[in-house]
Design a protein around this nucleic acid. Structure first.
Length: 356
DNA sequence: AAATCGGGGAG
DNA sequence: CTCCCAGATTT
């Protein structure tokens, strides 16, 4: 089945119904109607796999802290990650920062202005490039995100995910056909608003929907089956034993997480990972702890569930007679400046209290 | 094509 | 508990 023969007539009907709905259901967002490519870029990166309500406070804080691309380029990666703390997918922040520096240093502060060059920016894929191209520059590129996929899957009755080449291509072609070439920004905004507010994953509000007369899923009562669910994968279980090592002066040892694992570039305490919940038999590498020193019971345990793993955290308090050498150490009251994974950040007040 | 990369809210 | 969110990148 192909949809390449969607008539301009049908596309027009789709657009009109869409615009009617969004006209009656306004949606306020800080970046709505924004033309400044920096702000559009930031909002789109920030909202990748992130709900609007979750990203909104981060966007506002980020813009206040880094109002333009120059400010972002001037900042350190640590400061940028600090603003990103708790939002997840930290490579987004790193790519954003690297690209900001590239724009300022190699492009004279000039933001890429055509789709192909926007697409070459780190962390920018087909969706984000289309969003920036249309919102910031008014270029006719259709966005294809989870919202659009869901709307089109139901409306046209397409029982496919976008995990495969063929499925992706099918939805791309469809979105391109439907796109309002005269007002690409308006169309892209409308179809995403509609998907987020009306054609929701669960319990869509079909009663208020102006597309339902043409909607395959509505007419055949297949709303619950479209789009097809992706199969969930089992989560990897991990156990992180964190050693909070402090000297009498309140200096605490920190380490930085490597690339190639969760939370790249964020800071944490020296750690030993074990296969199970049992206490580790060894001490964190690199930290000059007495190898046989008793560490006692964990002062805190916590758990963080990610989409692909579950991390159990165990915290041990270790008092050292003097400052550990050859380690990154920081005074307790400066630990706030270090971006940390949620499992550490959440209990910040607790272990700061413990250390003071 | 499949795995990896976070965190949170809805149901 | 499961599902999925203004996806991209690496394997």
């Amino acid at each position: 089945m192909t949809f390449s023969k969607i008539t301009e007539n049908r596309a027009n009907r789709f657009r009109r119904a869409l615009y009617s709905w969004t006209g009656e259901h306004p949606r306020e967002m800080p970046w709505k109607g924004e033309r400044d490519p920096y702000k559009v870029w930031l909002s789109e990166i920030m909202l990748q796999q992130t709900r609007v309500e979750q990203g909104m406070p981060y966007f506002n804080r980020f813009i206040r802290r880094f109002p333009d691309v120059q400010a972002l380029a001037k900042a350190s990666i640590k400061q940028v990650l600090k603003q990103w703390e708790g939002l997840g997918y930290y490579s987004r922040a790193r790519n954003l920062h690297e690209t900001a520096r590239w724009i300022v240093r190699s492009q004279a502060g000039r933001f890429p202005e055509e789709y192909s060059s926007i697409l070459r920016m780190k962390g920018v894929g087909p969706y984000t490039a289309a969003a920036i191209a249309s919102f910031a520059f008014g270029l006719p590129h259709a966005v294809l995100d989870g919202n659009v996929h869901r709307v089109l899957s139901r409306y046209f009755g397409i029982d496919q995910t976008m995990d495969h080449r063929a499925g992706k291509k099918l939805f791309e072609d469809l979105a391109d056909r439907l796109l309002d070439k005269e007002q690409p920004a308006r169309f892209n905004q409308a179809i995403m608003d509609f998907g987020a507010l009306c054609c929701t994953p669960k319990n869509p509000d079909c009663t208020s929907c102006y597309l339902r007369n043409q909607c395959f899923a509505f007419k055949l009562d297949r709303i619950g089956q479209l789009p097809p669910a992706k199969k969930s994968k089992p989560r990897r279980i991990r156990h992180f034993h964190y050693f909070i090592v402090a000297d009498p002066g309140g200096q605490v040892v920190l380490s930085r997480r490597p690339a190639g694992d969760v939370w790249p570039g964020l800071y944490e305490f020296p750690k030993v990972e074990t296969d199970g919940p049992q206490a580790p038999k060894v001490r964190p590498a690199g930290v000059d702890l007495p190898p046989r020193a008793k560490i006692g019971k964990a002062v805190l345990t916590d758990k963080q569930v990610l989409s692909h793993q579950v991390v159990h955290g165990y915290f041990y308090l270790v008092r050292m007679p003097e400052t550990p050498k050859n380690q990154l150490t920081q005074p307790v009251d400066k630990l706030n400046r270090f971006p940390m994974p949620g499992i550490l950040a959440r209990s910040r007040k607790f272990w700061k209290e413990l250390l003071s």
